[in-house]
Every structure is written in C-alpha cells, then in structure tokens.
Design a protein around this nucleic acid. Sequence first.
DNA 1: ATAGGGCTTCCAGTCACTGGAAGGTCAAGA
DNA 2: TCTTGACCTTCCAGTGACTGGAAGCCCTAT
Lengths: 136, 136
Amino acid sequence: MNIGDASTHSGLPAKTIRYYEDIGLITPDRTDNGYRDFSETHLHKLAFLSRARGLGFTIEDCRTLLSLYEDTDRASADVKTMARGHLDKISQKITELKAMQDTLSELVNKCHGDDRPDCPILQGLAGDNANKEQAV
Amino acid sequence: MNIGDASTHSGLPAKTIRYYEDIGLITPDRTDNGYRDFSETHLHKLAFLSRARGLGFTIEDCRTLLSLYEDTDRASADVKTMARGHLDKISQKITELKAMQDTLSELVNKCHGDDRPDCPILQGLAGDNANKEQAV
DNA sequence: ATAGGGCTTCCAGTCACTGGAAGGTCAAGA
DNA sequence: TCTTGACCTTCCAGTGACTGGAAGCCCTAT
C-alpha cells in the first residue's frame, strides 16, 4: 500500500509518516520503483502511533510503548507506570491552563472594552494592582 | 542595571532577555564595556512580558500587547478582543486535555498493572475495543 | 505525447527558548 | 600586581514534532 493510502487509513499526514520513518518509528518496505509499501502490520503500528500521539504521549513515549506492545512478555505494570506519569503531566498542564484562564478572565471581565483607552487588562499585565472594581 | 539583575527583577532568564532583544521586543542601552544596561522602563517592559508570557500569550501577541500598552490612545476594545481570543484558545486546549485525561484514565483503570503481560492500555492504543470490563 | 497526480529526497522553517564554547571585563583578596 | 571567580559578550547548534517547498521521478489516462 502506498503512503497516500496509509495516510488515509491512519489519519496521519504522509509527511508525518515519512518523518516517523526518518526517526525509526516504522520501517515500511519498498517496491521496485522506490515507493514505500505498507503492510497490514505497518498500518496497525501507524494507527497505534496515531492514537498514542492523540493522547499526548511524546514520540519517545510512543517508541517505548510500541516496543512494549511488541514485547509480549512485558509486565503490564510497566505500561501502567508510564501512563500514570503521563496522566500526571496532563493534570498539571490542565491546572496551569486553568490558572491562566482564571487570571485572564478576571482581567477581561474588568475591561469595559469600548473605545476609551483605559484598559485593566494592560494594567494587570503591567503589574498595576491598584485597579479595583469597587473604585467605580 | 546589568542583565543579571534585570533577570532577578523580572524573573526571566538572562538568555531569554537576550533573545527578546534579538527579536526586537526590547532594546536596552549599552554601557562603555558593551554590557547591556536596563533602565526602570526596561524592567517594566520585562515584567510586562513575563506576565503576558505567563498567561500563555505568544511572543507575537506580546509584541502587539506591548505596542498597545505604549499607545495611550488605543481602544480598550482592541485589547479585550485579543484577550478573548486567547481565552478561547485556552478553553479549547483544556477541553482537549480533559478528553485525553478521560480516555487515558479509563484505560489505566482497566489495567491491573502487575507482572502479567496482558495490558488493556496497549490494547486500547492498538484499537482493540473488544476489551470490556464486564468480560472479567 | 502529454497532462495530472502521486511519489521521492533534501533543505529550511516553525516556536520560544536553552546549552555550550570561546573569550572579554570587573571587583576582591593574597 | 596577580589571580581567581563571577560576571558579561557573541555565535552556533539543538530541542519537539512536524510542516512547507523545491526539484525531479513514476504511473495512468487520454
């Protein structure tokens, strides 16, 4: 199967699949004309990578996960540990983003947003904490 | 004031401040020996940048915000629009992360995580949806 | 024969830094 | 005065995970 079809099947852009080959995540066969040739197994791997990346695992995580997947003797505890570590990172990221969201929405709410130049958002960014609502 | 002190004051690494100069976000003076020399105004700008970056604005957003900050005639609506756009992006990112979190924690919960090779996490990544809890 | 679409490689750019090398400058202490 | 060590300078390269684009080959249909 050509890279175009592999792309359609896996949902990964052809460029990305070539990149995955570059960094050794996958090694498709080649036909006589030099085109990449993807087997069912390759498609499986691509789908696996697509899902793992979709869950936010890094490329290196994916490399590990793939090798764990192919090692039928691995302990499921190893996988679980990785996944838990990744879950922690996700939670942390969410916490950070929520903090940004809180701070920024507070500033946005304070801003009247008309054609006057006075702007609590910029004042907030500038570290001007004297901008209190009750002073209206 | 030297870059080291400016770094301490603003909380930005010296390397980052140099980078900001490279891309034209700030232009500190220079003393005779070639060292950068930061004034109060520069420190203010660095603090502004530090806060804006901390809220997740891109460098280009920061450039715009800085110029809006310095343009005392700008309409606060312009700033509010930018901030709202950024808030949307943050919300979207949070939504994505939560989806990852949901999917991955479900898989993690299914995984017994011992020394047996059977692993629902890898099966989930491989697209094996036949792994249902009630089959235990 | 030619047009088009798909395939190949290779190089460069993205974003926002970060690390490191090689070397200049300055203040304090022996 | 010399040296030590902490600064500072510039420049180059690397990060992660692609993405865009150029130049050119291959295959099929008309």
